[in-house]
């Protein structure tokens, strides 16, 4: 019986993951702004232009690498595509106090949200950081990727350009 249940369960996941139409919106969860105000993720918007949501943490090396790499070219990206990057920190209260000093100290110009108890991370089904989402002008998640390696930013820019031009992303 247990085996059967497991099988049915696996099958459900399989069907769900492969038959689902790829229209996913951002779930509504309360997070905090960098100034400690409560902010609902339903209010994430960029006037019809693409948005990158990047889950990161101050203690996560590849995350910091990703955000540092993008920071170098962020201005150009914004000019070219109007994209906005929202860096969602999953630092808990051990390190959440260092998020503001880190983004300022590193001179990043991103919008930053604090997800101190990983509520947004859970709602977005993020297993591990870094995990990056690309959202189109209609607020739909059109692409996501986990992990970061050098050169990943080049791939991402290609996709942002497509989204900004209103094209669909196909693998």
């Amino acid at each position: 019986m247990k085996k059967l249940l497991t099988f049915v369960f696996a099958l459900t996941i399989y069907t769900v993951s492969f038959s689902q139409e790829k229209v996913t919106k951002i779930p509504t969860v309360d997070v905090k702004t960098i100034d400690g105000k409560t902010f609902s993720t339903a209010n994430i918007s960029n006037d019809g232009k693409p948005i990158i949501i990047s889950f990161w943490a101050t203690w996560c090396k590849p995350c910091v690498k990703e955000l540092t790499t993008i920071a170098e070219v962020y201005e150009d990206w914004q000019k070219e595509t109007g994209v906005k990057l929202i860096a969602v920190s999953i630092d808990d209260s051990r390190t959440s106090g260092t998020v503001k000093p880190t983004i300022n100290g590193k001179n990043w110009n991103y919008e930053v949200l604090l997800d101190v108890n990983s509520d947004f991370k859970r709602a977005m089904n993020v297993n591990a950081v870094p995990h990056t989402f690309l959202i189109n002008g209609k607020g739909e998640i059109v692409w996501q990727h986990t992990s970061f390696t050098d050169g990943g930013e080049i791939e991402l820019l290609k996709l942002i350009k497509k989204v900004a031009a209103g094209e669909e992303i196909k693998e």
């Binding site: 106090g97 503001k100 880190t102 300022n104 100290g105 001179n107």
Partner: peptide
């Protein structure tokens, strides 16, 4: 915790 931060420099 107390911190001071500006673009490019922070202390906490």
């Amino acid at each position: 915790a107390a911190s001071y931060s500006q673009k490019g420099l922070s202390f906490s």
